[in-house]
Amino acid sequence: MPSFSLSNLYLNSHLKVVYFFLYMPIIVLMVLSFNKAGLPTVWSGFSVEWYGKLLDNESILNAAWNTLIVAVISTILSSILGTLLALGIERMKVNSGLDALLFAPMIIPDIVLAIALLSFFTMLDFTLGLHSIVLSHVVFNIAFVCAVVRTRLKNFDYSVIEASEDLGAGSFTTFRRVTLPIIFPGVLAGSLLAFTLSVDEFIIAFFTAGAGSSSTTLPMQIYSMIRFGVTPEINAMATIVMLVSFTMVFLSQRINKGITQ
C-alpha cells in the first residue's frame, strides 16, 4: 500500500528531526568547549584549556561532590518511601485527598517550598547543611517516584502476591521475590527521575542549604556562572556533566537489563 509506506517515510523522517532537535544544542556546546577563543561564535583552534581551568577550580569540584551526595541520598530515600507509598495506595480505594497530597509537591512553586522550609527549619532551630537539602529534595522526589511506580502498578496482577503467600512465603520474601522484580523497571525509572530532579534543583537547595561553601551545590554554581557571563568554562562544565550523566544512565540501563532478563 503506497499510503502506508508514505506515512512510514514521514514518521521516520519526523523521528530523525526530533533527534536532531534534541542533540544539536548539546553537540554545539560540546564542540565549543574545545574552542580556544572562548567566544561561542568564532572557531579559533582546538584547546583543552577550559577543562584545565575548570578542574583547577576547587569550589566547583567541591560543589559537584556536594551535589552528588545530596542527589544519591535523596534518591535512595525517596525511592524507598515513594515505592512503599505507591504499593500501599494502589491497593486502596480511590481517595482524592490523598491524590491531592501527592500532586502537591509537584506543583508548589519552588520558591514557596524553599521559603517555607527555611522558615520552618529556623523556627525549630535546626542546623542547616547538606542534610537539610536532602530532607527538602526528598519531598518532591517522593511524589515523582510514587507517580512513576504507580503507572507500573496499573497492570499489576495482585493474585501473584496472594499465590505466593498461599504457598507460605512471608511478606518480605514475597516482596523481594515477586513484587520487586515486577515493579523494578518502574522503581528504576522513578529513581532516575528523582536523581535528575535533585541534580538540577537549586532554588530549594539555595534556601535550605547551610551558609557557606560546604553546602553549595553545582546548580547554584552553574546558575551563577550563567547569570554572570558567558564564560567558556560553562561549555566545558556542560560537557562533563553530560558525559557523567550519560554514563550513569547507560550503566543503569545495563543493570536493568541484567535484572529483568
Binding site: 548539546i26 561561542p40 532516575l192 538540577d200 537549586f202 552553574i222 556542560a238 550513569m248 544512565v249
Partner: peptide, 23 residues
C-alpha cells in the same frame, strides 16, 4: 531508540537552557 530520546533529559536543565542562548 527510547534510550536516545531520554538521554538529553538526564543532563542539567540550566545547561540545556543555556545551550539555546548560544544558538
Amino acid at each position: 531508540y527510547l534510550f536516545f530520546i531520554m538521554l538529553p533529559f538526564w543532563s542539567n536543565y540550566l545547561i540545556r537552557t543555556y545551550a539555546w542562548i548560544v544558538l
